[in-house]
C-alpha cells in the first residue's frame, strides 16, 4: 500500500518516468521514509510502555548478587527493556556495583543496553527484513553475555575507580505507574525520540536513495565484499565515531549492501555504531580506570569483529 502510494506520487503526480534514475531514487526515498516512520512510531511506543515497568532501580534489584552465566544472561535481556542513556551511565554503573551486581554482569548490561536498542532494530527490520533484525538481536545478546562473562573472569574490580566502592547510595522507592501514566510516559518518550532522530532518518534515507539510483552495481564488492579480510575490522573502526546515528547510518548501509557490501560486515558495523562510542568511553572513564576501560572496548570490539567474519562466512 505504501509502495503504491509512493509510486502514485512519483510517477503520476510528479510525472517522472518509471525506471528513470531520478524517478527510482525519489520513489525509494518516499517509500522508505514513510515505512520507517510508521514502524518507528508504533514500535517505540510499544517498547516505551514495556520500559515504563522496568526502571533501572528495579533492574538493579533483580540483578543484585546474581551469579555469573545466569546473571549475565538476565542482564543482557534486561538491557533491552531498561531505558538507558549514555549520560546516565555513571549513576547507573555505581548503583549496580554498589548494590552487589557483579562487575561482569554489570558489563553485560552496559553492552546490551545501547546495542540492542529499538531504533536499530526497527531500521534493520524495515530495511533488511525481520531475519536480519532477529540475527542482530541474537548475536547482540550473545556478544553482551560472553563479553560480560569474560570481563568477570578477569577479576578487574581493582580497576574500578576507588571512590565508587566508598559511595553511599540511597534507596529510591520504585514507583508503580498506573496504566494512564504508562501511556503518558510512552507518548512523551516516543515524541521526544522521534523529534531527536527524524533529521537523521531523512538525511540517511536520502543519501541511501541517491546511492541506490546513481552508484553502479557491485561498486563496493571489491572493497567491502566478503573476500576482503580487512573489511570487517575497518567497518568496526569506522563505527566507533558514528555513535548515536544508527537511525541515519542504517539506510546508507542498506544502500551499500545493494552495491556489494557483505552482510557480516554490515552487522559488525551496526554493532560498532551502537555499542562502542567515544563519548561513552569518556563518560565511563569517570568510574573505570584505563586498563578496565581498554579491556571493555577491546573485548567488545573483538567479539563484534568475530560476528562479522562469522556471518560473512555463513550468510
Amino acid at each position: 500500500m505504501l509502495k503504491s502510494f509512493a509510486d502514485y506520487i512519483v510517477f503520476t503526480i510528479i510525472n517522472l518516468a518509471p525506471g528513470s534514475r531520478a524517478g527510482e531514487a525519489l520513489d525509494f526515498f518516499i517509500y522508505d521514509t514513510l515505512k520507517i516512520f510508521l514502524l518507528l512510531t508504533t514500535i517505540i511506543f510499544v517498547v516505551a510502555i514495556i520500559r515504563s515497568s522496568f526502571p533501572p532501580e528495579r533492574t538493579k534489584r533483580i540483578l543484585s548478587h546474581k551469579r555469573e552465566y545466569i546473571g549475565n544472561t538476565l542482564a543482557a535481556l534486561l538491557g533491552i527493556v531498561t531505558p538507558f542513556c549514555s549520560c546516565s551511565a555513571v549513576p547507573l554503573f555505581i548503583g549496580f556495583v554498589e548494590s552487589g551486581v557483579p562487575l561482569g554482569v554489570t558489563f553485560s548490561f552496559l553492552i546490551s543496553s545501547p546495542m540492542v536498542n529499538e531504533v536499530a532494530l526497527i531500521m534493520l527490520w524495515g530495511l533488511f527484513g525481520w531475519k536480519i533484525a532477529l540475527i542482530y538481536i541474537g548475536t547482540g545478546l550473545l556478544v553482551a553475555i560472553f563479553a560480560g562473562i569474560f570481563i568477570g573472569k578477569l577479576k578487574m574490580e581493582k580497576h574500578v575507580q576507588d571512590y565508587v566502592w566508598e559511595m553511599q547510595v540511597g534507596n529510591a522507592e520504585i514507583k508503580i505507574l498506573t496504566f494512564r501514566e504508562k501511556i503518558d510516559y510512552a507518548r512523551e518518550y516516543t515524541l521526544g525520540l522521534l523529534k531527536k532522530i527524524w533529521p537523521y532518518v531523512v538525511v540517511g534515507v536520502g543519501i541511501g536513495a541517491f546511492i541506490h539510483g546513481y552508484v553502479p552495481q557491485d561498486f563496493l564488492a571489491r572493497w567491502a565484499g566478503r573476500d576482503n579480510p580487512f573489511a570487517v575490522p575497518v567497518a568496526v573502526a569506522l563505527g566507533v565515531p558514528l555513535y548515536s546515528n544508527a537511525a541515519g547510518v542504517i539506510p546508507i548501509v542498506q544502500a551499500l549492501t545493494a552495491k556489494g557490501m557483505a552482510m557480516g560486515t554490515v552487522l559488525a558495523f551496526m554493532m560498532a555504531v551502537t555499542a562502542l562510542s567515544l563519548p561513552e568511553a569518556v563518560i565511563l572513564s569517570n568510574v573505570l580506570k584505563k586498563p578496565l576501560l581498554a579491556t571493555f572496548f577491546g573485548i567488545v570490539a573483538l567479539a563484534i569483529v568475530f560476528v562479522g567474519y562469522l556471518f560473512n562466512a555463513i550468510l
Partner: peptide, 12 residues
C-alpha cells in the same frame, strides 16, 4: 555524582 547517588537515583 556523590550527591546524586545519595538519593539512589540511577537515571538522570
Amino acid at each position: 555524582i556523590p550527591s546524586i547517588m545519595k538519593y539512589g537515583v540511577m537515571s538522570t
